[in-house]
Amino acid sequence: MSLPLRVAFAGTPEFAASALAAILDAGYSVPLVLTQPDRPAGRGMKLTPSPVKQLALARGLDVDQPEKLRTDEQRQRLAACEPDVLVVAAYGLILPAAVLQLPRYGCINIHASLLPRWRGAAPIHRAVEAGDAETGITIMQMDEGLDTGDMLLRRAIPIRPDDTTGTLHDKLAALGAECIVEALAALPGGTLSRTPQPAAGVTYANKIHRDEAAIDWTRPAADIERAVRAFNPFPVAVGSLRDTVIKVWAAEVVAVPAPDAAPGTVLAADAEGVVVACGAQALRLRELQRPGSRRFAAGEFLRGFPVCAGERFAVGGAQAG
């Protein structure tokens, strides 16, 4: 039996689909799902529905895919379903004031960071890249700013030294699903306290661009190792060796005395990995991939693409494929 709260939902990727599934499994009525229009994807670049749309259709829900929500016509279906609240998770569209004010309880957002740290588009990537010790989920009452609304609920989790954006995404998706169900249960009774975000500690998680994936070997090895984890599974860190763009899926810092070799120089290559000099210390590349092949552990990779000590990766210029 459905709970009395009518919950419209707006979201697009897998992170959002986890939350939608939890809301449905908790028994809430979801009269409408908003998601991004189908986009080209895969090798054939066929129009592909978002993970949220796929889940919504599988559960028999009504779906709307407006390009924007600026006009009354674009908002018509949302207004007609008369939601009590609109839950938003990685939707990808800016919500104008007319949408924020439409539901009785407004719009609440599932944000994958401990606000006010990492407002913006890529909070998971940036937390890993920065070497943060923890991150989490913030359920936020949306306003017209960029992730500036009052906090309703906040849960933290540690970031493990081996976490990638991929592994952390999955943990936060599960946590976000738990948190939104908890928040919805408390919403009608008014037991959620609205806490303004502090002015101190604000950072912005800028959108990830492919050109960031090119490894700058003049940086310290620890910085590069974090970037490798941050860009796994997208866009994947890359280096260029013998004019071949090599994706680096996993790496570890090697504590070595300051080498005479220039940054980017291969110091060793064996089954344990390809050791490359960096601006400080060195990095052992443990899992690699070359064009037209799949990703391999270093030993297997080297059987198909031998690498010798003394060779040098290009410093800058490699582009993600």
Rank of each mutant, 00 (worst) to 15 (best):
A222D: 14
E182H: 09
V87T: 09
E73A: 14
L187D: 11
D270F: 05
G92R: 11
E182T: 12
K247T: 04
M1G: 07
A79D: 09
D147H: 04
E225H: 12
G317E: 00
E300S: 14
V248G: 03
G27L: 05
I108H: 10
S50N: 03
D216A: 11
E300T: 13
P257T: 07
G304M: 04
F301P: 15
R126F: 12
D147A: 08
L47F: 06
R284T: 05
A282E: 07
Q36K: 08
I215V: 13
A261L: 04
Y91F: 15
K53Q: 13
G292Q: 04
L175C: 00
G317S: 04
A186Y: 01
G279C: 12
E178Q: 15
R155C: 02
W249H: 15
E300G: 05
L175A: 00
A41K: 13
G316Y: 00
G131V: 03
S240A: 10
A318Y: 07
N232R: 00
I110C: 09
E225A: 14
I159V: 07
G106L: 00
P40C: 14
A186P: 00
D143Q: 12
D64A: 15
Q76F: 08
A320I: 01
D147W: 06
A10G: 14
I108M: 13
A156L: 02
G279T: 07
E129T: 10
P291E: 10
R229Q: 12
A183Q: 13
I23Q: 14
E272A: 11
H125S: 06
V315F: 06
K171P: 00
A318L: 02
P259K: 10
A199I: 02
Y28I: 01
Q289R: 15
P96R: 12
G27V: 02
G299E: 01
D243Y: 02
A112H: 03
P158K: 13
A98I: 03
L184S: 12
F15E: 11
R284L: 12
A297W: 12
R194I: 01
L69Y: 06
V99K: 13
Q76R: 15
N232G: 02
A280H: 11
P259I: 08
A213H: 12
A89C: 15
G292C: 07
V266L: 03
R303P: 01
S50I: 00
Q289S: 11
T48R: 14
I139V: 10
Q76N: 09
R242F: 05
W249P: 00
A262Q: 12
A133D: 15
V228A: 05
R104W: 04
A8N: 11
D64K: 03
V245W: 09
I94S: 04
I246G: 07
V52L: 03
Q197N: 06
D64M: 11
F313D: 05
A258S: 14
